[in-house]
Design a protein around this nucleic acid. Structure first.
Length: 903
DNA sequence: GAGCCCGCGTAC
DNA sequence: GACGTACGCGGGCTCG
């Protein structure tokens, strides 16, 4: 039996600090706001090493602050590196503290990079007869690999680097890595390498000559004259680069491999440490594994105390406590994510950190046992829910509002919504789910819905979830929401977003809830008739298409359609998508000149679109009890601040075509009412004029001119009455294109003119409106400096694109800067108008209901005798929502359906 | 069969 | 690669 050689694990700290910092995908923070994601990720990495390898000898190696020997050789070494982000800088001492608390030895030597210290320690270990595992993802360290004695391992990607894997990855053996990097250079460390020699050439040279020295001494043997020339010219640079990339083994390390044993962890210290950073998961683990009394106590302290309330006694105790509180977090558990169809299953409440209560009212699982009735619970809670106090907070509390309203309770005193707050802090983030918000702002992981109810087809209704799990889940929702409130409020304050929250988004919640709850009446019979008409039209188009194509096929299948158009019929490919030739509208329009099938496909598409998306689906969404359609308005989706609408989306109901308008005819008012549509005329262009301050643009709006006609007249140098429809169309396209940041290419495509012609048109536009160009440049620059676009009411959207080194990405950022400022301001204004109008309607006790918002349009259901009053009120509040340097103008129409209201 | 992506088309 | 913001449909692919 041979004694197993001990192994020394050398951890390259910087590598994992940076990676954890950037790779988490989300920003974690401690309760006090300190960023923590690098600490979190670093600890995860350490745990993986400790658990998987149970190492006896470990050493964490840090990079020292300040210059190293390499800077003496080459002052520009790592000169292109950006400085360590401040959010990471503050985490470095935390990480060092963590390593010490865990009892893991560490070393840092002034003037020597971690790589060099690792090499020196590795050499010592080999001499002592040990094996070495280098823990790092860094390719510079590949040069030290000498299996079986030295290997490199990246625990995060679980990648092991041996001679073989290094060769597969880089195309050279580990001992050639330094020469390889010396030849090709390393842009991340600003190592120059030989100009003109890249990865491939470097590989080929080393394959032929073995080492850099051989390459340089046998330069005459290089076959390619061009490469020979580059090597001769770059000899100095190559030698310098080799000095830079070579890991040296002579760092003065006092620490001996034998001393690198893990000491006892300071459990008490770790508990305090994890507690201060809010790492509940690690605390739990510590309590489970270390079993220290202190850890148990601490985990206990952070552990929620959940109360399950199933009887009158428990419920009255809860009510008595709530009565004394200022803030109440509420989360309803129900049978559906659709608030208009949801029945109550339970109520979770929280009014104190780390404590929550769950009151089941509709559990049907085997373990359900005694429960209070929904009616009883709502009656008991009513005074608190319908009063201003306690103030109510929730995650997407609009949902609670609608469900409660359907259960006869009108929620008042909404104080805060964590979803909305998270959205305001970073509207570009695609998720504002509670689980993600908790991870980002509390640094905790949370029980997920799928953890208790399963997912996919295994998902069970919440009512059947075992009560114990249900309590845990519901309480965790209510309680984390409660604790998020002060954290998010402070962050809103820090970002100057508190006012936007308090005066716009929060008051909007109840307005939207009322709109959703009210819904809009839809004439199903009318849609049914339309469906038949469309069906007949579709049948005819199908027939024509099959006839031309010489047989039936699925026109809705892009693959089959491509086959017919570009295979069978040999039509030219105009445009390509990722997967093949495009068949979209712009392509078919071009093909229409060449072949009759194209027009039929366009018509077929438009008819099936209307039928499938709208006509046949809207009736399915009519609520059985109200006979109306209740869309959901999402307040936390768009990057610009607009609302979005879904289930169904009532913000993209057709209007531009005749058949499309037939669909709007099916949206009708209640008997005795009319539908009133009020839309802002050219709101985005007006905002653009306001911001740019361009005198002619402002004057045009001040005079009430037809802006597209005016633009055409100015650009083409003709009097307004001589502007042709074609000229006006071009001007209109440019007006919109400018807001979207459209370039000559896009404008040319859109107008069907040459790119040169489009370029000239844009130049004419800028010459006409002299203030525009300057404002665009100014707003882009401001956004770049601040890091975000800002709207009139202070809404922010972060635009990291503006500092990208990639030109395309940067230009994209510039378009976003302009467009978000405009679009987001329009969103601010109509949201404020909605709040003002809702207020006025309620104050005056009117019977009118706001039903829909379509970005620049509001739709109301108005009792006939209120129409005059409402028209005046809506116009006044919309037009005077906020003073701008141009007037805001509202167009209105009304009638017996939504189409008529637009006439 | 569920879940996801793609191409496409509707709105502002 | 080139014009911003959304939602949702049908086809078709992947995965279990």
């Amino acid at each position: 039996m041979t004694e197993k050689k001990p192994t020394l694990y050398l951890i390259d700290a910087s590598s994992y600090m940076y990676r954890a910092f950037y790779a988490m995908g989300q920003r974690l923070t401690a309760p006090d706001g300190t960023p923590t994601q690098a600490v979190y990720g670093f600890h995860q990495m350490l745990q993986k090493v400790l658990k998987d390898k149970k190492p006896e000898r470990v050493c964490v190696v840090y990079d020292p602050p300040g210059p190293t020997l390499r800077h003496a050789i080459y002052p520009d070494y790592k000169a292109t590196r950006e400085r360590m982000p401040e959010d990471l800088v503050v985490q470095v001492p935390l990480i060092k503290n963590l390593v010490d608390l865990l009892g893991i030895p560490s070393v840092e030597i002034t003037g020597y990079e971690a790589d060099d210290v690792i090499a020196a320690l590795a050499r010592k270990a080999l001499q002592a007869g040990m094996r070495v595992v280098i823990i790092s993802g860094d390719k510079d360290l590949h040069q030290l690999v000498r299996e079986p004695h030295v290997i490199q391992w990246d625990p995060q990607k679980d990648e092991i680097f041996t001679s073989e894997t290094v060769e597969r990855k880089l195309g050279v053996r580990p001992e050639q890595v330094r020469d390889f990097l010396a030849l090709m250079g390393d842009s991340s460390d600003n190592v120059p390498g030989v100009a003109g020699v890249g990865r491939k050439t470097a590989q080929n040279l080393l394959r032929q000559f073995g080492t850099l020295d051989q390459v340089l001494s046998r330069v005459e043997d290089i076959k390619s004259a061009a490469i020979k020339k580059k090597i001769l010219a770059g000899k100095e640079a190559a030698l310098l680069s080799r000095d830079l990339v070579t890991v040296r083994e002579d760092a003065p390390v006092a620490l001996e491999p034998d001393q690198c044993t893990i000491g006892a962890a300071d459990t008490k210290g770790l508990v305090a440490f994890f507690q201060s950073l809010g790492f509940r998961r690690f605390l739990d683990e510590l309590a489970r594994e270390a079993g220290g009394e202190a850890a148990h106590a601490a985990a206990e302290g952070l552990q929620r105390r959940d109360r399950l309330v199933t009887d009158e006694k428990g419920f009255s105790a809860v009510l008595a406590e709530i009565a004394r509180e200022d803030v109440l977090s509420i989360d309803l558990e129900t049978t559906s994510t659709d608030a208009m169809r949801a029945d109550l299953v339970g109520v979770a409440l929280c009014w104190e950190d780390h404590q929550a209560a769950y009151i089941p009212v509709g559990h049907t699982g085997e373990d359900a046992g005694e429960q209070l009735s929904a009616t009883r619970v709502l009656e008991g809670l009513r005074p608190f829910l319908e009063g201003e106090r306690p103030r109510k907070v929730g995650q997407n509390i609009k949902y609670e509002w609608v469900v409660l309203k359907r259960h006869g309770v009108e929620l008042q005193g909404i104080d805060f919504d964590t979803m909305v707050a998270s959205y305001l802090l970073d509207p570009g983030n695609p998720s504002h789910r509670l689980e993600r918000i908790v991870a980002e702002h509390l640094g905790e992981s949370k029980l997920r819905y799928s953890d208790v109810a399963g997912s996919g087809k295994h998902q069970i209704p919440f009512a059947q979830v075992p009560l114990e799990k249900a309590v845990d889940y519901a309480c965790s929702d209510a309680e984390t929401t409660f604790r998020l409130v002060p954290v998010l409020r402070e962050k809103l304050q820090g970002a100057k977003l508190e006012n936007l929250m308090d005066t716009l988004e929060r008051p909007l919640i109840a307005v939207l809830a009322r709109m959703e709850h009210r819904g809009i009446r839809v004439d199903a019979a009318r849609l049914h008739e339309l469906s038949k008409v469309l069906e007949e039209g579709i049948r005819k188009e199908e027939e024509a298409i099959y006839h031309i194509a010489g047989g039936p096929f699925n026109i809705q299948s892009p693959i089959q359609l491509r086959d017919v158009l570009f295979g069978k019929l040999q039509l030219p490919v105009i445009k390509k998508t990722k997967t093949g030739p495009s068949t979209d509208m712009s392509v078919l329009e071009e093909l229409a000149a060449l072949h009759p099938i194209a027009q039929h496909i366009v018509t077929y598409r438009s008819l099936t679109k209307l039928k499938n998306t709208y006509v046949d689906n809207l009736p399915k969404l009519i609520h059985p009890e109200t006979g109306r359609i209740h869309t959901s308005y999402n307040q936390a989706v768009t990057a610009t601040g607009r609302l979005s609408s879904s289930d169904p989306n009532l913000q993209n109901i057709p209007i531009r075509t005749e058949e499309g308008r037939r669909i709007r005819e099916a949206f009708v008012p209640e008997a005795g009412c009319v539908l009133l549509a009020a839309d802002y005329s050219q709101i985005e262009l007006r905002i653009f004029a306001h911001y740019s301050g361009d005198e002619r643009l402002v004057a045009a709006f001040a005079e009430g001119a037809d802006i597209h006609r005016r633009t055409a007249a100015e650009m083409f140098g003709v009097p307004p009455h001589e502007v042709t429809p074609e000229m006006r169309r071009q001007a209109k396209t440019i007006n919109f294109g400018i807001i979207y940041g459209m370039g000559p290419y896009g404008l040319g495509k859109q107008l069907g003119i040459s790119q040169a012609g489009a370029k000239a048109a844009i130049e004419r536009y800028f010459a006409t409106y002299e203030g525009v160009k300057g404002w665009i440049q100014q707003v882009v620059e401001e956004c770049r400096e601040r890091g975000y676009a800002e709207t009139l009411l202070g809404r922010r959207r972060y635009l990291p694109e503006l500092n990208s080194r990639n030109r395309n990405v940067r230009q994209q950022g510039e378009r976003l800067a302009v467009n978000t400022t405009i679009q987001g301001t329009a969103a601010d204004l109509i949201k404020k108008a909605m709040i003002d109008i809702d207020d006025a309607i309620r104050k005056e006790g009117l019977g009118t209901a706001m039903l829909l918002q379509v970005h620049d349009e509001l739709v109301f259901e108005v009792p006939e005798d209120e129409l005059d009053r409402i028209r005046a009120l809506v116009r006044d509040l919309m037009e005077n929502v906020h003073p701008l340097s141009v007037p805001l103008v509202v167009d209105m129409g009304w009638g017996a359906n939504w189409a008529e209201a637009h006439a």
